[in-house]
Amino acid sequence: MQLQLQQLLPVYFDESQRNNSEVWRKDLTFNKGEYVKIVAPSGSGKSSLMHFLYGLRNEYNGNIVYNNNDVRKYTAEDWAGYRKDHVSIVFQDLRLFPEQTVYENIELKRQLNPFHPAEKIKEMTERLGIGSKLNNKSRICSYGEQQRVAIIRALMQPFDFLLLDEPFSHLDDKNSQNAMQLMLEEARLRNAAIIFADLERIDFFPYTRLFHL
């Protein structure tokens, strides 16, 4: 399982922006098991990169190749299968169903392609300190709690790559470390790669490769 970026650059970026970047307009290959840290100041295209990799947007030049397949050629059905089986994501803006409970939000992802049994939901929420919120609608949870829901939701499926887009923006250090620990364990279970994009370096992410966007 390989993820390749070939001369990637958002169409709305001018060429000058690529000069200082270690990602844009470069040829990069990510393999399973790698922990990739991408440090990206605001406006450097961090969310764009994550959305390109997850197939939400395609306003880019260059290619994204997954397993020797150019994702530009993916149909809607192909994307569904890709997101269900191979790539998982924690969005910066979380994207939960506001009217559903915490449990329902996680279960909606889990039932699609269960990597874990349903009991795991309770176990993980308790571990991250939101066990008592399972039956609360997600919209009444605090942002920090919602962030943890989004993290657990991303861990319910099998994946080769876990994309993290500022996953700890509203968590204190202790909670962040706790969540990071869980994600590392889960990635190890699947021998998956983590691509972690954030504004600055986070000490408790044991990256194997570091890029500045």
Partner: peptide
């Protein structure tokens, strides 16, 4: 909601 479901990997055909 539907968009989010598709985003999570639900097949549009299904």
């Amino acid at each position: 909601n539907l968009q989010l479901l598709l985003m999570l990997g639900y097949s549009p055909n299904w």
